[in-house]
């Protein structure tokens, strides 16, 4: 079972990113559960979205041991990486996360996710899709085709081209390494 945590600040679109990832898993013919936790604020405050992907039925809907954590804010990186095992994967947004966990994590990708969204697509709000592009490239947790399909099914009409671009920019960041 894959156990993926997407974390950051409320308003960064991480709950939507989790939904898209889970929908991509269903498109791959697997099962997925998505859940989230957040504070009462509409924006700001820590936000996390969790996605479990498996071929067998998923009983417990929450992460018991993450294999991948995406941290899009320093607070999220401090708060939501404590249970990431040493051989886990940590992806951070280098614009916001300056301080990595002070315990060893083997695979760390510090990627300019939000900067890329802003500079190449003109809006920071594509950061969640850039992050998904990177995460799927690194983990292969869903197929690239299903990710694209799932993203396009969820985004507003007229933004399809930009969102497709966001996925490939994310994949390029990942390929360039961490």
């Amino acid at each position: 079972m894959r156990q993926i945590r997407l974390s950051g600040t409320g308003g960064q679109g991480l709950i939507l990113a989790g939904i898209i990832l889970a929908e991509a898993a269903l498109l791959d013919g697997r099962l997925a559960v998505q859940s989230q936790s957040y504070g009462p604020e509409a924006r700001g405050g820590s936000s996390k979205s969790e996605v479990l992907i498996d071929t067998d039925p998923i009983h417990y809907p929450k992460i018991t041991l993450p294999d991948t954590v995406l941290a899009m804010s320093q607070e999220a990186c401090d708060k939501y990486t404590g249970d990431l095992p040493e051989n886990g994967l940590l992806i951070t947004d280098s614009l916001f996360v300056a301080r990595l966990p002070d315990r060893p994590v083997k695979n760390v990708f510090s990627l300019p996710i939000t900067r890329t969204a802003k500079e190449q697509l003109g809006k920071v709000l594509f950061a969640n899709i850039v992050a998904l592009g990177a995460l799927v490239k690194i983990t292969g947790c869903v197929s690239a085709e299903s990710l694209k399909k799932a993203v396009l099914a969820r985004v507003p009409k007229g933004t399809e081209t930009l969102n497709e671009k966001a996925i490939s920019l994310g994949a390029e960041l990942a390929a360039a390494g961490g």
Partner: peptide, 9 residues
């Protein structure tokens, strides 16, 4: 809240 807010197939 767990069941109300979780998403699954």
């Amino acid at each position: 809240e767990i069941i109300g807010h979780m998403r699954e197939k």
